[in-house]
């Protein structure tokens, strides 16, 4: 299972970025190898549709779950159509969020955030 975590910086001790489309980095956690990889979000300065672009990235990276703060309505439509669920992380480190997710302690994001 591959998990995408929106991150403020590019290491496992980073804080989870509350923004989905305009997060600083994507952290990818591979549950089989227990390894993290980090990718810079080049869509951070997109004029529009940053959420859609990030959702597309999640699809292309073939992740199974997303850990983040908020997901907007358009990104939510893309993720729903692709069958990828987002999980809420209120605040905290990337490693903690992953542990909580594996322990089943994170809630699914059912409603997009607005504005």
């Amino acid at each position: 299972m591959k998990i995408l975590i929106t991150c403020e910086s590019n290491h496992p001790q980073s804080m989870v970025d509350q923004r989905f489309g305009r997060c600083q980095y994507f952290g990818i956690y591979n549950q089989e190898t227990e390894a993290f990889t980090f990718i810079e979000n080049d869509g951070i300065n997109a004029n529009q549709g940053a959420g859609i672009a990030t959702a597309q990235k999640a699809i292309d990276l073939q992740v199974n779950a997303i850990l983040t703060g908020n997901i907007g309505p358009k990104a939510m439509d893309v993720l729903k159509a692709a069958g990828i669920s987002g999980y809420v992380v209120k605040e905290g480190k990337v490693t903690e969020a992953v542990e909580q997710f594996i322990a089943g302690q994170l809630e699914v994001i059912t409603e997009p955030s607005r504005g």
Partner: peptide
């Protein structure tokens, strides 16, 4: 999807999604 500079398109499973407002 790659050609769209406005992120108005997404490729999901079996179709291309269009966000007309973008």
């Amino acid at each position: 999807v790659t050609s769209c500079q406005f992120n108005a398109l997404a490729k999901v499973l079996d179709r291309i999604m269009l966000f007309p407002s973008l």
